[in-house]
Amino acid sequence: VTTYKLVINGKTLKGETTTKAVDAETAEKAFKQYANDNGVDGVWTYDDATKTFTVTE
C-alpha cells in the first residue's frame, strides 16, 4: 500500500488530499471521485516519482 497525493488547482477549490491505495490506478479512481464530488473538472497529470496527481481547472 502506497500513499498518493492529489493537488487541486480548481477555480473555487484549491488544496491537497492524500489516499492510501494498492496502485496508482486505484488512487486515480478515488481522486477522480473526490474531485467530481467537489465539482472540480479539469486536466489531470500524474508524477510517478512523487506519487502525485494534479488536477487543474
Rank of each mutant, 00 (worst) to 15 (best):
Y34V: 07
L6I: 03
T17R: 15
V22E: 08
D23R: 09
T26I: 08
D23K: 06
N9K: 13
V7Y: 15
W44H: 01
N9Q: 08
V43Y: 09
E57C: 03
N9S: 10
E16I: 04
T17L: 12
V22Q: 11
G15T: 13
T19H: 07
K11R: 13
K11M: 14
T56L: 07
E16T: 08
T50I: 10
Y34D: 02
V1C: 05
K20S: 15
D41F: 10
A21G: 03
Y4G: 00
K11A: 15
N38M: 09
T17Q: 14
T26F: 08
K20N: 14
T18P: 02
F53K: 00
E25P: 08
Y4I: 01
G15F: 13
D23Y: 06
A30G: 05
K20P: 07
Y46V: 01
A27Y: 00
A27H: 00
A49F: 11
W44M: 04
D48T: 11
A30E: 15
G39L: 14
Q33V: 14
L6R: 00
K5P: 00
V1S: 10
E25G: 11
A49E: 08
T52I: 13
F53C: 00
T2D: 13
F31M: 03
L13M: 11
D37G: 06
G42R: 02
I8Y: 09
A21P: 02
E25L: 13
D48K: 09
G10W: 14
E57F: 05
V7K: 14
D41Q: 08
V55K: 01
T26C: 05
D48G: 13
T45A: 11
K5Q: 04
E16N: 03
E28P: 00
V55S: 02
A30R: 12
G10I: 15
K32V: 13
T50W: 04
T19F: 14
T18L: 12
V22R: 08
N38K: 14
L13C: 08
G39R: 10
T45S: 15
D37L: 13
K20V: 13
D47I: 08
T2I: 12
G39F: 13
Y4V: 01
D41R: 06
V1D: 10
A24D: 09
T3M: 12
D37K: 14
V55E: 00
V1W: 15
K14T: 08
G42A: 02
N38T: 06
G39Q: 05
K29N: 14
G39I: 04
T19C: 05
N9A: 07
K20D: 13
E16Y: 05
T2F: 14
Y34Q: 04
F53T: 00
K32W: 10
K29P: 02
G42N: 01
A24L: 07
A27Q: 01
G10Q: 11
T17I: 12
G15P: 07
T19L: 12
Y4H: 02
V22N: 09
T19D: 03
T17N: 07
V1M: 14
T54G: 03
A35L: 07
D47H: 09
Y34T: 04
T56R: 06
G42T: 01
T3A: 07
A49K: 12
G42V: 01
F31Q: 00
E28V: 14
K5F: 06
A49R: 12
F53V: 02
Q33T: 10
T19S: 06
N9L: 12
T54M: 10
D37Y: 08
T54Y: 06
T2A: 10
T52W: 02
D47P: 00
E25T: 13
E28H: 13
T2W: 11
A27R: 00
V43M: 07
K20Q: 15
L13N: 15
T26N: 05
A49D: 10
D41M: 10
T19V: 10
A49T: 11
T3S: 06
T19Q: 08
N38I: 06
T26Y: 12
T3R: 05
E25C: 04
E25F: 09
G39K: 12
T12H: 14
T45C: 05
Y34L: 07
N38E: 14
K51V: 06
V43P: 04
